[in-house]
């Protein structure tokens, strides 16, 4: 019971962080059709900016300023570079963000060095919120969950209930009509791109100190958020939420389970020895493969339901 509760909490909080990361990516993709390969790099920039700003001032200032700065950078990139490649098609757009991820990585290493920086959790949020059986639940994890849920709620409100949201939605489906109505569609796109980058940066601000702020952090999450987006269904925010939570919880529980094929086969009366064909596969424990489960899930999902959980198009 203890293990179950703790694992569930851990899984959900990790899943929510994944959602924060993939929300921006999904948003940009669904609105502009651009897969931002550098999305995880903006996440990293968020963490580094937050580290730098909190060194100068404090965490709370960084919490506000870092995402804004990254959003501005993202918007500038959209206006100066990405927009130029729009006419060459989606492959060029993907490539340009791919190149950007290289450049950001190098620049981060140039400015902050190649070893981890000491980006600390603020004192007010350090420590444990409550004790559950023997383990403690850190306050900061709870804070992360609150921020993620808050972000989800405000995202929903902005998109569904405000005028800006309506314009954004209109610009997506009917860009020409929206333009004819006097709205600046390119500016809407820049706004969306900046917003998506800002969301990634926000995830970086709260993920950077919960985990570790170092140059490898972008690559570490880069592939997994792509999995979230594909499994959730390309361009679906709701799907991304479900997929993030699914992956978070699944990974967390898998770590705790020492199941392997050998155990399963033996309970079925099949004897497996090191001489059996494929022994290296049968002996693997579920806990050992936990971190790559998302990729397995991706493969299974593509075979069973190529359009993803909430996807609408079957490309």
């Amino acid at each position: 019971m203890e293990f179950f509760t703790i694992s569930l909490l851990n899984g959900v909080s990790y899943g929510l962080l994944l959602f924060m990361l993939s929300a921006g990516l999904t948003l940009i993709f669904s609105m502009m059709g651009v897969l931002n390969f550098a999305h995880a790099s903006f996440y990293m920039l968020g963490a580094y900016f937050a580290y730098q700003v909190s060194e100068w001032t404090n965490f709370w200032v960084a919490f506000v300023i870092a995402p804004v700065l990254v959003a501005l950078l993202g918007g500038a990139f959209e206006r100066t570079v990405l927009r130029k490649t729009h006419k060459f098609g989606h492959v060029a757009e993907l490539l340009v963000t791919f190149g950007l991820s290289f450049v950001i990585l190098e620049l981060v290493q140039l400015v902050w060095g190649r070893t981890p920086v000491e980006y600390k959790v603020p004192a007010a949020l350090d420590g444990s919120l409550f004790k559950l059986f023997n383990s403690t639940f850190p306050t900061y994890r709870a804070f992360m969950m609150v921020v993620a849920i808050g972000m989800l709620a405000s995202l929903f409100l902005v998109l569904k209930k405000t005028r800006i949201g309506l314009v954004i939605q209109a610009a997506l489906t009917h860009p020409d009509t929206t333009e004819a109505l006097g709205h600046n569609v390119p500016r809407v796109f820049a706004f969306v791109f900046a917003g998506g980058c800002g969301l990634a940066a926000l995830a970086g601000v709260i993920g950077g100190n919960a985990f570790i702020t170092e140059p490898g952090m972008a690559q570490a999450v880069g592939a997994i958020i792509f999995v979230v987006v594909v499994v959730g269904g390309m361009g679906s925010l709701g799907g991304a939420l479900i997929a993030s939570l699914l992956i978070g919880v699944m990974q967390t529980f898998a770590v705790g389970l020492d199941w392997s094929f050998i155990g399963g086969l033996q309970s079925l009366g099949v004897d497996v020895t090191p001489e059996t064909f494929g022994y290296p596969v049968w002996k693997l424990k579920l806990s050992q493969v936990a971190p790559i489960l998302p990729y397995l899930l991706l493969v299974v999902m593509l075979v069973v339901r190529p359009k993803g959980i909430m996807g609408t198009r079957d490309e």
Binding site: L35, H90, L94, A223, F226, V230, M234, Y295, V299
Partner: peptide, 13 residues
């Protein structure tokens, strides 16, 4: 685009 993302995932795997 989904093809690109899937090849990335399979590569990691």
């Amino acid at each position: 685009t989904p093809f690109s993302m899937i090849t990335l995932g399979v590569g990691e795997l």
